[in-house]
Amino acid sequence: MPHTITRPTLPLVAATALVGAVLALGTPDPADAAVPDTIPLKITNNSGRGPVYVYDLGTQLSTGRQGWADANGTFHAWPAGGNPPTPAPDASMAGPAPGQSTTIRIPKFSGRIYFSYGQKLDFRLTTGGLVQPAVQNPSDPNRNILFNWSEYTLNDGGLWLNSTQVDMFSAPYAVGVQRADGSVSSTGHLKSGGYTGFFNALRAQPGGWGNLIQTRSDGTVLRALSPLYGVETGALPANVMADYVGRVWQKYSTSTLTVTPFADQPNTRYFGRVSGNVMNFTDSSGRLVTSFQKPDADSVFGCHKLLDAPNDAVRGPISRTLCAGYNRSTLLTNPNQPDTSAANFYRDAVTNQYARAVHAQMADGKAYAFAFDDVGHQESLVNDGSPRQAYLTLDPLS
């Protein structure tokens, strides 16, 4: 079944100029050195495993066409697909052997760098384009393959490259960028023992969170699904966030939730009050600007549906802030949102335990554990306006 990302993480947002992300990132200085058509991506295999297969799939920014890039950074458009989906051309590249590195070139793209261990991924094409792996579906052909992906955008403004756990937590890796001055920024590494520690934390968490873990028939742990897919597949109960949402609803029936969505616009504030089954937001003049129905766990974990975040200047930024507050369970302890202090996150017994466990095992505390984890700059992202080289490091599964 076709899969699309519930919400783009920041590199993809950068390409679509989502309100808020643009404000946070700023506008590239025209005086900066021009970004070349391709840049090198050095892939290092510290996992101890192989063979590794690598894919660079996405949308060509100059044309809007979907396709893949080869090791030289040359773009290839996908051929027409079918219904039922037809096999896609083999877009795989040989990855590095254990302990080795290999370098490919990545073009101006908005897309994903997939990597798989042991066997190639099975990609299909429909009449609407590429079918991404959707391992929450038991019949997905990639269900028993150990794989993961990074997301990136390379455009005239620079490179945005991140590690992501929005859909799942699986084979660990880190990303990095070398700047024009030769310095390197990186993120995404786990703490020592963090891979095993994450799965142990989920198993120990009552309420069905261990049901997110998928294993192969031989017992090999492959991944943990995000709680969004846990709710959708029944691995997590549909009411897993109901108690917390109910308490939020009760609190703001008699008090005001203040949302200041843009860090650089402290005077742009919105005020939320609950009336019945609706949380209404007004601006500083008292004008009603948007309303939200009481969200369910699906809406909270996916930051969609009842917490939809359109690409606008008001509802989208408010929804992003609410989504972060629900997932991190900060809405009851702080009536001024967003709360950007990580020490306050995930303190309630009812919270996104998956996101809590992901962040707890990251060496720098940064991750994309849900769609708007970039609120308060908690995301695992590297960005540079004049990138010399990018890095993808495949880490041990331990």
Rank of each mutant, 00 (worst) to 15 (best):
V221S: 06
G129A: 12
P172T: 12
V314M: 08
G385L: 01
L222H: 07
T321F: 01
P98K: 00
S386F: 01
T330L: 08
G210M: 11
G208M: 09
R49K: 12
A88Y: 06
R247K: 15
P172G: 10
G194K: 07
L397T: 15
L225A: 06
A343Y: 03
F271I: 05
A371G: 14
P11F: 10
H304D: 15
A21W: 02
F345Y: 15
N334P: 04
Q165C: 11
V245A: 14
P28N: 04
V231M: 02
G276N: 03
Y117W: 13
E232A: 12
T86H: 09
A77N: 07
K366V: 04
P237F: 00
S226F: 03
L307M: 15
Q378R: 09
D296F: 04
A367E: 02
H3L: 12
P387G: 04
A71Q: 06
S116Y: 00
S47P: 05
R287I: 04
S217V: 09
G67L: 03
Y270A: 01
Q389H: 08
V35Y: 02
N334I: 07
Q165P: 07
G208K: 07
R315E: 14
V274R: 05
A224K: 03
N142K: 09
A369G: 10
Q165A: 13
S341P: 00
Q378I: 00
V135Q: 09
R347D: 05
L61C: 03
Q337P: 05
